[in-house]
């Protein structure tokens, strides 16, 4: 299967730890992931207004690029990119009229888009096309004893038509972590929104959200929190110090991308984890379990 990999812009700067670990882990699994040529920013959010066709153009040009590359599937790890691309794709599949407007607008493209490419999140690809049992068989360094809280945020599980799992009780990341040998902990706030882009205009909102979400993970005994969205990671890791000003008792809790723990368990070298990118010290829990 030929998979076109869409990293998204944040994985090329703030979240290189997500990008590098994704490629390293997929390569270990024998998945042929090829970064899409000439990809462009997906636009980050799906416009909710019924007439908002202009914001479908950016996601669709990426799907056109993938068609031109002869891909069988289109894959991304960023939860926001996934949602934006998936929902644009769904919208055009369900609205032939909108599809023809978009193709007309993109008339300088060599290829018309027909809505015939599947947009997959990496977690879906691992679960549905590889299988966690298969994946478990490839683990070289089981994450034994590591207590992991899996944070989904919003866009992996909402809206329902573009969700990779159950909206209220998802388990795909817990299943992945168990396959890697880690211990998923209960985490009631795993689908609670982190406040997203409000960090730009009103960081106080994020401090309050981060205090609640990370406080919940800590109180359930997590050593660390895994996620799939560079915006969640920025809010929950880089802004964690702001949350601690609201609540000095909030224990430092490191944040990882799920691909970093995959890479670690599959035997990749420490350099692909890019641990220097983390704000909250990521080493302590890994060293304590003899994983570094």
């Amino acid at each position: 299967m030929r998979i076109s990999y869409f990293p998204g812009c944040t994985l090329k700067n703030h979240a290189v730890n997500f990008d590098d670990s994704t490629i390293a882990a997929c390569t270990r699994l024998g998945l042929e992931v090829k970064e899409l040529d000439r990809w462009n920013c997906c636009g980050t959010v799906h416009g909710l207004a019924a007439d908002d066709l202009i914001h479908r153009m950016a996601p669709i040009t990426n799907l056109i690029r993938a068609k031109e590359a002869g891909a069988d599937a289109f894959m991304t790890g960023c939860a926001m990119c996934y949602s934006t691309l998936k929902r644009a794709n769904l919208h055009l599949r369900q609205n032939p009229e909108a599809l023809s407007v978009v193709n007309g607008f993109l008339s300088l493209e060599q290829t018309d888009y027909r809505g015939d490419l599947d947009v997959l999140h990496l977690l879906e690809l691992l679960r549905d096309r590889i299988g966690f049992e298969q994946l478990a068989a490839r683990v070289e360094r089981p994450l034994s004893g590591l207590r992991v809280a899996c944070y989904y945020g919003c866009l992996l599980v909402r809206p329902r038509e573009a969700a990779i799992d159950d909206s209220e009780q998802p388990r795909v990341m817990e299943d992945l972590m168990a396959a890697l040998g880690a211990t998923p902990v209960a985490f009631p706030l795993k689908t609670e929104c982190c406040g997203a882009y409000q960090v730009v205009a009103d960081p106080g909102i994020i401090a309050e959200r981060t205090r609640r979400i990370m406080g919940s993970a800590a109180s359930h005994g997590a050593d660390l929190v895994v996620m799939s969205c560079p915006l969640c990671a920025y809010n929950l890791d880089d802004r964690q110090a702001d949350a601690r000003r609201l609540d000095p008792d909030l224990a430092p809790l490191p944040v990882f991308y799920f691909t970093q723990l995959m890479a670690l368990a599959l035997g990749c070298g420490e350099e692909v984890l890019r641990l220097e990118r983390h704000r909250t010290d990521p080493r302590a829990p890994l060293t304590a379990r003899g994983l570094l």
């Binding site: 944040t10 920013c41 960023c78």
Partner: peptide, 14 residues
């Protein structure tokens, strides 16, 4: 310090 994902989504919404 803000990642592009934050700035772009904030501009899109606000």
């Amino acid at each position: 310090s803000l990642p592009p994902i934050a700035l772009i989504s904030a501009m899109r919404k606000l």
